[in-house]
Amino acid sequence: MIKNTFILLDGIGEKRERRLWRQGVLTWEDFFNCVEVLDIEWEKKKNYDEFLRRAYDALLCKDCYFFARNLKKREHWRLFEEFISEAVCLDIETSGLTPEKGGYVTVVGLYSVNGYKALVKGENLTEETLQEAINEHKFLITFYGTIFDIPFLKKEFPNLKIEHIPHFDLFFAGKRLGIQGGLKKLETMFLIEREDELKGLNGYDAVRLWKAYLNGSIDSLERLISYNKADTENLFHIGKIFYDMLRTQVGIEEFINNGKYRSSQKVS
């Protein structure tokens, strides 16, 4: 999807992007090959070509920072397919209180194509280990992480650097698609199953399991980690579903299926 994206360009919004698609300019390569595009002046077209070539180079070397800087946050979902192998799903568990009232992060779960990793308070969760784990990836997937997970982590670990990588927040993607509800509701909607022992567990249970662990129950910690693992794995599945739905919503699939490329000619 990112190679079909023209809203990277200053002065190109969603409407003009769709005009380009409608006229057969579906990819950056198509744009390069057109002598003239829409009503874009020659000098601006030249600048656009130069910028898109930089974007193309950034994509080739998986420079996620380039896109984090130049693509609006609400459009970071467009990077999902290209950065899937470098993506990480992140979800935190907490003690149940806000940081202002002494609350803290108990578990940070990170799931990627390489598997799941849990960072647990008092064992291996530090600012350094969390930063190292994040630095291994180039694309972030959360559910409501923009509002909850990331700010909570930043309050506990003030020097943590995480905003510099593209972030696909599934909560806001759902709102954009007209889909309301929390992660568990989405799992039910899309027929995503959890193991029997994890069904029905929620955030309140996660707090309870942590307290039981502090009182000596190792089994409670293992169950808490299993609960968090399910959360992060399912973020990955829902991310793929939402990505496909968003592609359909913006209309690119229709143009790809029905449109014709118009290389090396004027498109107006």
Rank of each mutant, 00 (worst) to 15 (best):
M1Q: 06
I7C: 14
I7Q: 13
L8P: 01
L9P: 01
R16I: 10
E17N: 09
L20D: 00
R22Y: 07
Q23C: 07
G24Q: 00
V25S: 00
C34P: 00
E41I: 10
E43H: 12
E43G: 07
K46V: 12
N47G: 14
D49I: 03
D49N: 13
E50L: 09
R53K: 15
A55N: 02
Y56G: 05
Y56M: 11
A58S: 13
L60V: 14
C61I: 15
K62W: 03
K62V: 09
D63P: 05
C64V: 09
C64H: 07
R69L: 10
H76W: 12
F80M: 13
F80H: 12
E82F: 03
I84K: 11
S85I: 07
V88N: 00
L90K: 02
T94H: 02
P99T: 09
T106P: 02
T106K: 03
V107E: 00
V108A: 02
S112C: 11
L119Q: 07
V120C: 04
V120W: 00
K121V: 06
G122T: 10
E123P: 02
N124D: 14
E127K: 12
L130I: 09
Q131P: 06
Q131S: 14
E132I: 08
N135W: 03
T146E: 08
I147C: 11
I147Y: 14
F148M: 08
P151V: 08
K155S: 10
K155Q: 13
E156S: 05
F157M: 08
N159V: 01
I162N: 03
E163V: 11
E163Y: 12
I165N: 00
P166E: 05
H167Y: 04
D169R: 03
D169W: 01
L170G: 02
F171V: 08
K175R: 15
I179H: 03
K184H: 06
E187F: 04
F190Q: 07
R194P: 09
K199R: 14
G203D: 06
G203I: 06
D205N: 15
R208V: 13
W210Y: 13
W210H: 04
L214W: 01
N215V: 00
S220R: 02
Y227C: 08
T232I: 05
E233Q: 15
E233H: 06
N234F: 03
L235S: 02
H237T: 14
I238M: 09
M245T: 10
N257T: 09
N257A: 15
N257E: 15
N258M: 06
N258K: 14
Y261C: 09
Q265E: 10
K266L: 06
S268M: 13
